[in-house]
Write a protein that binds this DNA or RNA. Sequence first.
DNA 1: TTGAAAGCGCTACCAT
DNA 2: ATGGTAGCGCTTTCAA
Lengths: 334, 334
Amino acid sequence: MTMRRRPTIHEVARVAGVSISSVSRALNGNTSNADMVARVNAAVREVGYVPSVVAQSLKTRHTGQVAFAMEDIGNAAYLEMVRRIQPTLREEGYRLLLHSTGADVEDELGVLASLSQNYVDGLILCPLRVTDRHVEALRQTAVPVVVIGLLPDDVPVDNVRADSRVGARLAVEHLAEAGARRIAFIDGPLDTVPGRARYDGYRRGLAAAGLPEDDALVRFTDFQFDAGRKAARELLTVHPGIDAVLGANDLIAMGVLHALRELGRDVPGDVRVVGMDDTPLAATSFPPLSSVSLGSADRGRIAAELLLRRLEGDDAPAERVTVPPSLTVRESSR
Amino acid sequence: MTMRRRPTIHEVARVAGVSISSVSRALNGNTSNADMVARVNAAVREVGYVPSVVAQSLKTRHTGQVAFAMEDIGNAAYLEMVRRIQPTLREEGYRLLLHSTGADVEDELGVLASLSQNYVDGLILCPLRVTDRHVEALRQTAVPVVVIGLLPDDVPVDNVRADSRVGARLAVEHLAEAGARRIAFIDGPLDTVPGRARYDGYRRGLAAAGLPEDDALVRFTDFQFDAGRKAARELLTVHPGIDAVLGANDLIAMGVLHALRELGRDVPGDVRVVGMDDTPLAATSFPPLSSVSLGSADRGRIAAELLLRRLEGDDAPAERVTVPPSLTVRESSR
DNA sequence: TTGAAAGCGCTACCAT
DNA sequence: ATGGTAGCGCTTTCAA
């Protein structure tokens, strides 16, 4: 265990026989003397010098770090975002700091207040809910913030959103076109933003397809596998005439697939099924699950790009980007 | 957009009418004068002071940050680790920096060399392969490192490992007990640590069950769904007598399930299937997939705990923890 | 072009 | 107990 302290710019200067200013300049490309650069580089290699980013940050007032704060990295949608955010930021030399808030609103606010005043140059936030206090905090962050999710129109913050209402509608229209007439919907809680939007989209889809609404075909549960399974089992037992089910996310839809199998119904022969989010689950289920992609990966990438623009000093008015949903049709609704 | 500079400790001192030393002491609990603490806190609130972690880091020589470097956060096993690492570190006040290396060995080394000399107090590394250069780099990192995965015994670095060899063996023994006689194995690349270990475990399992080895029943591909599907299709077309398939991870096993369905073979009636990693996929597949858990969540937690001990100054000899695998039997092999 | 020196905001030592 | 002050390692003026 070598316990030598890391070499500083002073060692490099000493070995190269120049001043620390010259070392700094040579390293940052602020010199035109090729010989100087060569000498400094040689000294750097010799002593194994790595600049202290901390000292650099203190001086330059930026850290090269960006944080992504979301509820739980375990959620497939956030995961997709991270997978795109990281390389996008990295290409520009930023490191990614991860912040799972664990559905804790206070913590989300804490992140906004302190984290944004500290150790990061920017922040991508994916809030579960947006309260007045969020808005307040967003208005006075010390660094650029991009919010992924719904945000009131008057908040001057870059914002990337999905359109899950249109997404649900797409799914319903697709099912109707495929010949379905009694389309059930298993939703998450109606008091969540996505739950509400997807329900609205479902109803619009029915209207667009000229199908009647029937409350008996709708269930509000949780965004979970077991919830979908249970709801589908009940729904299809009471209403055997249901010929299609839309699940408000892929987990619910997977639960529906299981329920149908248990009930001996063929998918898509007897009942067509569509999910939402288009997670990796969808492609590997049996039968492969049609699903509405809400563009998580794109939202992540776009959020990162917006933030990078701000970090480069762009101070144009806040932008609002909506990523359009797209339906991937697989066997479950073909 | 308020463009005021963040207040520093000097503003607080001025408002509180004390010296900056007193502010620092009050804030860090190094004073016993309750009145002083109160005055300082009041001033802190008044000016909205948040200490600069950058300046603190420069002074104290630690950053409060820990990095987790792995191949791709999209992998379910790594994800499980992150989900446990983050809260564990966070409880002790450390932030988590994420570093997907994208299967790039050079990049992995780069992380070790520069990242460990910089902006983090410690590092959790989950290398895909361990080369001599890794070992070399590990020997001279500037901060404590914990490696999740297999590491040569003489490398003095804390190490948390799964026992995927025993895991694969467990799976084979279980299949044999269930009556399987011709157990195929679809592995990832043999030159990866898990690929190698699982293959060894497979062979030991066969030996333990008194079954003959048959190279024709083994395929080395990728740890992916499509790879598993394709390999299974070929394998079962050429060798219809195969009565069980072990997939080296759940994705492969899911691919196997699909291939079998396409070939019209019943699972588990004709062919039993077992996967590895016990990801969420397993429980929601059809039929639900038996899978060997390698304790990803536990490994993540333990790695974080080991690292925290080092960060607290513990300099006991490097520890080696092995998390035992466990088999969850579901319908696919019942 | 180069070097000296002034900080960036903080902690901790040393006087008082 | 409190305040002054010397750095932490760097970048960037400013003179030479």
